[in-house]
């Protein structure tokens, strides 16, 4: 996107005596660049830097001690478990949705796509609340669940459901436009040559969408591990049992245990940095294998 235009402006042009009419004056250019860098440093880079700084204020020993705490370890395990369930669930859904929407034509398609995008326009807190209304003790199914000894709210199943809800569109919305762009000519050829439907998917479709798939899974995973609002509503904050890493960060921070809170945050911030890194790499190296990007989220 941005690279193509910027690359088209050779540095030598700056030395040209007459400034092209499509270029801003050097003063405007430097003022705008300085404004952008200052704004991004203040609002994006400083918050990121302070996470690492605060985690290290009491030295390395205090930093690593935060990970010895049984509650912190339980939170890390739970977060990994939640992501291990939510991401494959939404991956399977994303593949099914993209296959049916991109490879076939049927009425009501755009409505279906809008509905798939719906969780992105719902506040995380509301996402948690709807599950409380459904499964909580005063919820629609609450009485039946209690009678059968099943607990969903204030337990792991509720956290999984809330996480699935907030990460629901990530894979699907990456794959649908990508597979729509690619059409189904290659699949039709494979099928005509006698390949089974499943083999066609594995050997023709999957190689075509692998980078887009990875991109979607990456974003889905980052959100699944970092979700706070929705999970906070359904978790009940039971230490060692229903606290994910972000919830544990909140508890530690509210107890003025800054080093431990920021040490766990370093874990999440590193995940975010790795996600951004791979994402940038995919956009740079495999841009043509990703869905064309207008609006990203």
């Amino acid at each position: 996107m941005s690279e193509s235009i910027a690359a088209g402006v050779p540095a030598a042009r700056r030395r040209a005596r007459v400034r092209p009419v499509t270029q801003d004056s050097p003063f405007a250019r430097y003022a705008l660049i300085a404004t952008a860098i200052a704004f991004l440093s203040l609002f994006l880079l400083a918050p990121l830097a302070v996470v690492f700084y605060e985690a290290g204020t009491k030295g390395a020993a205090a930093f690593f001690e935060a990970f010895q705490d049984p509650d912190a370890r339980a939170a890390i395990r739970l977060t990994l478990l939640i992501a291990a369930i939510a991401v494959p669930a939404n991956l399977a859904f994303g593949l099914a949705a993209a296959w049916s929407i991109a490879k076939f034509s049927f009425p009501g398609k755009s409505l279906l796509i809008t509905l798939i995008d719906l969780p992105f326009s719902v506040s995380p807190v509301v996402a948690g609340l709807v599950y409380v209304l459904l499964f909580g003790s005063q919820g629609l199914l609450g009485g039946w669940l209690t009678a059968h000894g099943v607990q969903i709210i204030f337990a792991v199943p509720g956290i999984v459901l809330a996480t699935i809800f907030v990460t629901f569109p990530f894979v699907a919305r990456e794959l649908i436009p990508l597979m729509q762009e690619q059409g189904s000519v290659e699949e039709e050829a494979a099928l005509t040559l006698g390949a089974s439907g499943f083999k066609t998917f594995l050997t023709v479709t999957l190689p075509n969408i692998k980078w887009g798939l990875l991109y979607g899974v990456l974003l889905c995973n980052a959100r699944a591990m970092g979700e706070f609002g929705a999970v906070s509503v359904v978790s009940g904050h039971i230490r060692g049992l229903t606290n994910t890493i972000p919830l544990q960060v909140e508890i530690l921070y509210n107890e003025y245990n800054n080093v431990a809170a920021f040490a766990l945050s370093v874990l999440l911030a590193s995940l975010a940095l790795v996600t951004l890194g791979i994402k940038t790499f995919l956009e740079w190296r495999h841009a043509d294998a990703l869905a064309a990007r207008g609006r990203r989220h």
Binding site: L40, L44, F228, E250, F262, S265, A272
Partner: peptide, 23 residues
């Protein structure tokens, strides 16, 4: 800088919250 623009999408909101509060 271009890559960092997406940071608010990637950084968990709780982490953003406590780091902004600390700043």
């Amino acid at each position: 800088l271009d890559a960092f623009v997406d940071l608010p999408f990637a950084l968990p909101t709780a982490v953003a919250g406590i780091s902004l509060a600390a700043l």
